[in-house]
Design a protein around this nucleic acid. Sequence first.
DNA 1: ATAGGGATAAGC
DNA 2: GCTTATCCCTAT
Length: 537
Amino acid sequence: MPSNGTASTAPYRPTSLDFINRPNPVEPQSVQQQYPLNGTPRIEQTSKEGLPRLLLDSLNSSTAERPAKRRKSGDVGSKLDLPKLPAVKNGAKRMRIPPTLSGLHQPPPNAGLLPSISTEQPVRVAGGTQAQANSAIDKPLLATRVPESSTRAKRSPKATPKSVSTSKPKRNKWSDEETACLLKGVARFGMGNWTQILKRPDYHFERRTAIDLKDRFRVCCPDEYRTSKKPKDAPPPQDGESITTSNQDTPTQPVSARVERKSSAELRKIGIEEPFEKSKRRPRTNWTEKEDETLLKGFEKYGNSWSSIRHDDALNLSHRQPTDLRDRFRTKFPDRYREAGLAPRPEVFPKKPDRKRINRNPTDQIENQEDDAFEPSTASALIQPGSASASKEKENKDPYSGQPSKPVPVTSLLQYDDVFWGAPLDPDDNDFDRPTLDRGILDWPNDIARPTVPASASINPLVTMRPRPTLPDPSMVSGISQNNGTLPSLAELTSSVAMDREFMEQLELPTLAAVLGEMRHQRRTGGHVPSLEELLS
DNA sequence: ATAGGGATAAGC
DNA sequence: GCTTATCCCTAT
């Protein structure tokens, strides 16, 4: 239920109208936007040469007037500095696109007939694909190692025509070679460094993740694994072997149940003579109810100043690191964490996708037929925001009352969680391509044939298709968005978006190449830099 | 010092 | 093999 008192404090959420009514980057705008979409200089504030300079600066100077940001390896600076979405609360995640434009993330209904939009092949690191480009330090462990190219080929539909119609085999059994690589890796790098082992170019693994390696080691050397985690426990039975695994040639447990266990003789056979190095990670220490209780008190007193909580002797949490306090609070009290304006942990796709759950559109299904292994880092980039779905729903209870947490007040037809917002967006992150809207988006309200909108979406097609002759007044935008801090209804938005053909044709702009070409020509020839009107004409 | 999010441990 | 809590690294 919306609260009238929140009108002045509710955070502003961009709507699709903000984007549709965004100042034309070429055409001066008479009405100042109430919520400029970013700090991009306004065209109308520039001189006649303002546009050319702005364009050239964007192309020539990737760092000018931009704050320091996290940059990832693939980030190139020479992008046209298109406007960004407005920043929201400090530290809070921002939605990538407004809800009514979320359909742009979805393929057309017949997208299954189209090739993938992506031009990049997913990187498959598991199995050393990435790391094998690096120089090998050690000699290859196994003479029979399968070249990584064949690894993929072996899994490709072409190599195994059966897999085109049927899914891949469910189980991916560990071969002796893989197991040897794993054990050898643990002997070299120690337990716990699974990713390091996985990425070594001289070890070969068949579509494994770091978790897979850990699980396999846990199966092969359970006692070694266990004792490394609980050093205070009673040591395993000693049998005089130099390797302190209890999976010895004279096991204390029935052999039949531990056929995967590797004996010390087997370990020696692959060159492992010494005990495995212990993990350097701190041991896990689960949280007690008392700790949770005091953590909550500490948060109520100090907020997210985790160090203050830690150093408050009355709270008795000094044995926890500040980041541990944060981690626990984020896990235990997600609602409180979110209410504090802190971004919840995003829900990530499973590494090995379950098609039934993940593939929401035909395009994904096609891609997954070609490449069905998710690399962790890739998977984490494909984040479902909101985290309120599926398994997280059980968390959506107030930690105090146990009652379901209050939903986001929405009075519209379109519920906040009904739409796909895209991945959470770092306000300072410019690693991604900025949203670009095809002008065809403006056609959709007038498109009579819209079979993709299900009745369950609560969209009244008669309302959404109602034509409007002109663009809405910009003041209407703020009127909608500011009324009470709630989202506008889909009907409001769509009726505002609809417009006539004549106006849309006026939106046609010269291409950037044409603009720049004209400018460069004029500069070379000493002519004047064309004005906006001249360019548009 | 904190936030974000990747890596890992442990339980199932 | 999967999920999730906890540990940990790094950017800001």
